[in-house]
Write a protein that binds this DNA or RNA. Structure first.
Ligand SMILES: [Zn+2]
Ligand SMILES: [Zn+2]
Lengths: 575, 575
DNA sequence: TAATGGGTGCACT
DNA sequence: AAGTGCACCCATT
């Protein structure tokens, strides 16, 4: 449609004006492998000594199977259903997750693995090539392409080589740990890995609030059990003041939502509750009725996790990254207590410490970086933390209350739009030159380094709330000072490995093949003003496009209209 | 209020013009105890020999506890949750159900029990007195009163001494089997008992269709496990063409509903699906949202089972005994297959046979006594089996679709209405004289004999559909001819035992103490025209009141207005 | 677990 | 009609 045509234009422009190779070279020069090896090994040894449970998990698991990379779920019933489900799940659908590891050596642990990997570079290279060849792994055809594409996407937007090193390290790790037969299980070290990815995700989400479109979470660890997905998400969303609950789950698909507020939580409900009017016009086909829900259970926020057989990985997508209520970290919540118990059973001391600090802050009424998220109705409402007013005309059209959840990308619109733009994006656009981008400042660099969100259109926005960000940075600093810094800094060096992959693969796909072009929109470009720049819109590069569209100026709709990226009317998310 | 005042009037009149004692005497003369004893014993021996499974269940159960009277749930997972739940339920709330049986003799079985009871009349008398004194059983204070009250209620309405014998027998059995320490467990014989009550309930429900008010199911067996409630209800409702599903469950409360229709079942959906209009005005307090429901899941039919601590029994109430869809017995349903598997595991051959016959009929497209139940909207629709047209103006006011289910009696209105009428009913009205009532015909007598429904106002309506009833009778005959007749006929004699109870207790309470007076209404008196009588309304006796209000005349609302029992407008069932 | 959306059984809180 | 957390489903493409 019009929208896609515009996107094609934009992407074409971006691709012709960027160059990724310079960054690659920089990364290679920045680190050497001995450094990486030593620091990681040290980190692993540190953790494997301070808790007995990890070895317990090893022995229990290694008898039957090698969990690819997920937390083990033994003895960690997340919910009351978990035992039941484990019995079934592992006999039916979840077998596939563990079946690939039948050949692993039960005696090896994560430390041995690290030794193997980092003391022998050629071995690592072999592992990387394994995916590249994609012969032995039947379904992996697109995996390396996608990984590279995601890297490039982030690179385009965040323009920081240090960030790139982070991302590369993640991609390498993700490839090595979950799928390779040499990988072994070690709860402790898996926790470290998971926690690392967790913090990356948190950082990204914090800077992507109030998005009305899909946000793909990259750097999702591999999970042994589908319940571990929730634990991981809890690690991410509890610190953001969001308590998640499963809305629907499957062997291969889980949908999370905000846990329903109780009546006593009424304080946190946004004031301007919509009076339900004309509920009938909810859906085109009538006859649908709604399950009974309380007025406190209207939040449109959703997380969708689905297991991708091709990648053998869980894909996590955030939908409607805004809330109809205030966000609050509540350490007294029963679910939170259970969550912490689970952490204890898993022996994830790192995360426990982190949440202890969070609890401390919450007790002291210190800010926990939780700000008010406006209702998706788009009616003018202050974002209290920043004093920013959301433009009433943009975020969404005023809509009936019962359609408070944005519809997922629809099949109909998919078929409407032929794959033209997708083809252009994925095949017809060689990315031989990606413009090297300059970093802004140290703190910004750090922020960008943690960037891991893949926007559907691979266009990233810089949402630089110094308030929230500095807070987050401080918090991170605390964590680092309590002994968690080494992993990040050392693993970071891994990105240079990525640079050794064949350039063809890097260039052949800038975009996630699983992405739906129809999910693309630029709505959020204008949702979150920042103090960085004021200015007119320029379409010269993704960098400029993103940064300049972020403006403290409240008259954002004007910029929007200038852009004319798509028809607002025909692309309403609400029906 | 006005309604209750009218009720008081009516009840007072009824009570003053009825006499229960004559019936009592008749019953006493009809049978002698040797007859009872011999036939029951014979019956029991017959069944305990033809299946090995029953003994298996005996041994398994008797080691730990004596199930009061419910089906054992060992190895009978009704749903996928059942195993999980059994583990929990029996450790927590459901302990209450089994705790009372700790002192039972594990060696005795149901046959021994029958021997004890019927070979020694004074012993039986003792058992009856135990409840009467209600000293040893802390919570049983009202139980004998209630039992007597229910008997009287039915007596008033059904006017058949043979029916009374049935009822008495049931009450006696219920007292003996579940609560007395001498009761023993025997799956086979418990099945017999359950099945007997099942058929009673089926019979009653068949004649009480299209009721817009609550229907109390009497003669509910005692259940060992809350899951057994569903099994029992399935025995009742599958033959009626209703597949039930749990809507919500608790330790002490379970709500069942019609299993949602699938899309392929669209044929059975009633045609005039309401177009949802103005869904907003659903409830007085707004802000409620409905869980997503398909258009095929709108049936208002509900069954509410709640465990009464006082009686140590499950109370079963049917709400909205009508459906928004056609009823059809579907032997291919997955749930039905599971149900039958459960029956097999329980060794309930009797029920299995019955359902085999049902399946046979269904295969042959023979009528299975399933008729179309009109939508509760009250719009004119044919009841296909009888060619009866439901008056459009009575059943309910036209209403928005999403309030398709009648609201339960509300607590608020409870407190509004002081207990005046209840006091009148339960204390101030001696029932020294209950009018002896004449029976109509043999077939009718049989029908009445199976009557076990307690209407909320203790006013029974004679709904005499000869079509449905004869069909049912024939079906019953088939069942009896396949070896199920003896229990009923022999146990019937037990009613004379009931007559030996102290008259004071019988007289002191005509009404169920657990009943909510606010649940009372007479709506259904006029819902089901019958061919029995045509005529004007008379208020001279309960008998006349009931019978004369049943009219084939479609102009029922006229009679209703003459009666002026309550304000139609202020007592709408739908909001 | 093809991908992806949604209904609903049913017990927990 | 407690509301809802969660999972077993089904439907469509
Ligand atoms: Zn929310
Ligand atoms: Zn129904």
């Amino acid at each position: 449609m019009d929208k896609n045509a515009r996107l094609d234009e934009i992407f074409a422009y971006i691709l012709n004006n960027t160059n990724v190779e310079n960054d690659m070279h920089n990364l290679q020069e920045a680190h050497d492998f001995n450094e990486i090896h030593n620091s990681i090994e040290e980190k692993c040894n540190t953790f494997s000594n301070d808790d007995q449970k990890s070895s317990t998990f090893i022995s229990e698991n290694s008898n039957n199977k090698r969990p690819s990379n997920g937390d083990t779920s033994i003895g960690t019933p997340t919910t009351k259903y978990s035992n039941t489900i484990n019995d079934k799940g592992q006999n039916s659908g979840m077998e596939r997750l563990t079946g690939i590891s039948e050949f692993s050596d039960p005696a090896t642990n994560i430390n041995d693995f690290y030794h193997q990997v980092f003391s022998n570079f050629s071995h690592l290279q072999h592992l990387a090539d394994r995916d590249t060849k994609n012969i032995s792994q039947g379904n992996d055809f697109f995996q390396p392409l996608e990984d590279t594409a995601q890297v490039n996407q982030n690179q385009l937007v965040n323009s920081s080589s240090i960030m790139q090193s982070k991302l590369f390290e993640e991609n390498i790790l993700k490839e090595l740990l979950p799928s390779s037969p040499q990988a072994t299980d070690n709860t402790k070290n898996n926790s470290n890995y998971h926690n690392h990815l967790t913090e990356i995700a948190i950082e990204s989400l914090k800077r992507q609030r109030n998005q009305s479109k899909l946000i793909h979470l990259d750097s999702v660890p591999d999970f042994q059990d589908s319940k571990d997905v929730k634990i991981w998400l809890q690690k991410i969303f509890y610190p953001l003041g969001i308590e998640i609950a499963i809305e629907r789950s499957d062997k291969s698909k889980i949908t999370y939502k905000c846990k329903a507020l109780k009546k006593k939580d009424e304080v946190y409900q946004n004031n301007h509750v919509h009076t339900p009017v004309n509920e009938a016009k909810d859906s085109g086909e009538m006859g649908k009725k709604k399950r009974v829900k309380s007025q406190y259970n209207t939040c449109p926020f959703r997380i969708r996790a689905s297991y991708k057989i091709k990648r053998k990985k869980w894909e996590v997508v955030i939908l409607n990254n805004f809330h109809s209520h205030q966000l609050k970290f509540n350490p007294d919540s029963l679910n939170y207590k259970q969550f912490k118990d689970t952490l204890r059973e898993m022996g994830d001391i790192e995360t426990i410490k982190k949440f202890d600090e969070l609890e401390y802050k919450a007790q002291k009424n210190l800010p926990v970086d939780v700000d008010t998220i406006p209702c998706e109705c788009g009616l003018t409402e202050e974002v209290q933390s920043f004093g920013v007013v959301i433009p009433s005309s943009f975020n969404c059209q005023s809509k009936p209350q019962n359609s408070s959840v944005k519809k997922f990308a629809q099949k109909k619109s998919n078929s409407e739009n032929p794959k033209l733009s997708k083809e252009v994006l994925t095949k017809n656009l060689p990315i031989s030159k990606v413009k090297k981008q300059s970093s802004k400042s140290v703190s910004t660099i750090h922020s960008n380094a943690l960037e891991n969100l893949t926007r559907d259109s691979s266009i990233e926005k810089e949402s630089n709330n110094s308030n929230a960000f500095e807070e987050w940075e401080n918090e991170n600093q605390v964590l680092l000072s309590s002994g968690h810094g080494t992993v990040e800094s050392s693993i970071m060096g891994l990105n240079s490995l990525q640079a050794n992959r064949s350039p063809e693969i890097k260039a052949s796909s800038m975009f996630d093949f699983n992405m739906d072009i129809n999910e693309v929109d630029f709505t959020d470009l204008f949702l979150k003003p920042s103090k960085k720049m004021d200015g007119h819109v320029a379409k010269t590069s993704s960098e400029n496009l993103v940064e300049e569209s972020i403006s403290k100026n409240n008259d954002i709709t004007k910029d929007l209209n200038d852009l004319k990226l798509f028809d607002l009317g025909s692309n309403g998310h609400y029906m």
